[in-house]
């Protein structure tokens, strides 16, 4: 099971990174989402896989015993999903506003903050 998921994780990473290497910001954004899923799956798989038994106790248990899924990676990933979503929304809005202001989503043409050509700082004191 872990082996199959490892391959899947590799595919997620490949797709995500390929998209992020693009020069179009929208594709980079798509890449970020895929990349986030890849990382979550990576952590999930590294915590070992257990089918269909959630780490929830029944009413009469005082301790979680027996074979259940590993709760720790789940707790980490749950917050990670929410944080990635905030990050994604932020990037999306940034892209949206950039496009409105500059009129392009080509990263090569986005040179407002760092214009091309050498600009020497003042040489005095």
């Amino acid at each position: 099971m872990e082996a199959v998921l490892s391959i899947l994780v590799g595919l997620f990473f490949t797709a995500g990174i390929y998209l992020m290497l693009s020069k179009a910001i929208v594709r980079i954004l798509l890449g970020v989402v895929v990349f986030g899923n890849a990382v979550n799956l990576l952590i999930f798989t590294a915590g070992r896989i257990m089918r269909e038994v959630p780490p929830v106790m029944s009413l009469d248990m005082t301790q979680l015993t027996g074979d259940t899924a590993n709760p720790l990676p789940q707790a980490l990933i749950l917050t990670a999903i929410v944080i990635s979503f905030s990050f994604f929304s932020f990037l999306l809005v940034l892209t949206f506003r950039t496009y409105q202001e500059v009129g392009t989503d080509d990263t090569v043409k986005l040179r407002v903050a760092e214009p091309e050509g050498k600009i020497l700082p003042p040489m005095g004191y």
Binding site: S89, V93, F96
Partner: peptide, 16 residues
Amino acid sequence: VVAGAFASIALALEDN
């Protein structure tokens, strides 16, 4: 927090 922040984001985008 989650409800407020994400509702704010969604509504802001819809509004715009």
